[in-house]
Amino acid sequence: MMQSPLVVGVDGSESSLRATDWAADEATRHRLPLRLIYATRWELYEGAALAASLGRSDTRVLGENIIGMAGERAQLRAPDVKVTTDVLPEDTVKALLRESRRATALITGSRGRGEITGLLLGSVSLALAARAHCPVIVVRGDDAALAGSHGRVLLGVGDADVDSAAVRFAFREAKARGCTLSVVRAWRRPSHESADHFLPEGDPARYYEVRAETVLDEALAAAARDNPDVFIQATTAEGSARKALVDLSAAADLLVVGARRREGQFGLQLGRVGHTVLHHAACPVAVVPKSA
């Protein structure tokens, strides 16, 4: 049975080369094939004279050089992994979204070659995270995070994450890495308590903390039962989930969040937590769609 590959979007930038290295390690870890894609609408720029003399455009040649070097780099890093490469003559986002239909995961760098200096996250990475049909991993962070030296996968649990695709994905990653799975559920006490809302005696904040603990237990129960060898550290944190996950990402090798996408006037959109961690996390971020 053919295994679905890890697909990497490559554009020759330093960010995409770091993503290629990370993906090669991930392919080795999970024993998966690796597919590298350079997508560009090169045929739009192919002049008649150039086509007659070369039979291909300068942009096509550039793409083949970039993808060829990336392929050699990946193969040297992961000699036991089957590496394939391709140059696709179409829009980058469109091509990678199509690839995501038959990929185990889609992996990109955090910024592209043409991104404006100082931009927190590239437009291609953001579009893919919001719309791909498989998990999208945006590779960001320092060398320690990219090398997996922290020994920790971080999972943020939301309201809809009972035995979710994101939970299962995080367990698989922790198991493959032989590392700790750190799970966080954030909670807040409403600023105004409802008069008809029953609260137990004692510290009112404890009521919301216990509710968060219950959500954690329910979210992890099935996956924990199926993966007894994964060591779990489950905690609750008072305050913003976005802040908690960004802060904790500094000591993680991978941050996993679920994607509850919603249709809006601008199409599919990620939630606030997804947006924040993609822009600010200190380690690679995996966005796992509900159906993945």
Score class of each variant (00 low, 15 high):
L254E: 01
E218L: 11
V138K: 05
A212W: 00
S191G: 12
A145V: 04
G239N: 12
N227S: 09
V139R: 00
R188W: 11
A250H: 08
G141I: 00
E193W: 13
A224C: 05
Q265R: 14
S164A: 13
P135N: 11
V183M: 09
L268E: 10
F231A: 15
R261M: 14
G158Y: 03
K175H: 13
D253N: 02
P204Q: 10
Y208V: 06
L254P: 05
A250E: 06
F169I: 04
V184L: 15
E218I: 06
A259S: 15
S194T: 12
D143A: 12
D229K: 00
L268I: 03
A170M: 07
D253P: 04
V215H: 09
L254D: 00
H192P: 00
V230R: 02
F231N: 13
S182P: 01
G274M: 04
A250F: 02
L255F: 04
L128A: 04
R211S: 04
G202P: 05
A165G: 08
G258F: 12
R131G: 08
R177P: 01
A252G: 01
S182I: 03
D142P: 05
T214R: 14
V157K: 09
L181F: 06
F266G: 12
E238L: 12
V183H: 10
A221M: 08
G239F: 07
S164R: 06
G264C: 01
V256A: 12
A147P: 08
A132E: 08
V153T: 03
R211A: 07
V210D: 13
P135R: 11
L270S: 05
A224L: 05
H197Y: 15
T214C: 06
S191M: 15
A195D: 13
R260C: 10
D247W: 10
E173Q: 13
T180W: 03
F171R: 01
D203H: 08
L270C: 07
R152Y: 02
A145F: 00
T235A: 14
H150L: 00
P204Y: 07
G267K: 05
N227D: 10
V184Q: 01
A195M: 14
V184G: 06
A222Q: 09
D203Q: 11
E201W: 11
R189D: 11
S240R: 15
L268W: 11
A195K: 12
Q265C: 12
R262D: 08
A252H: 01
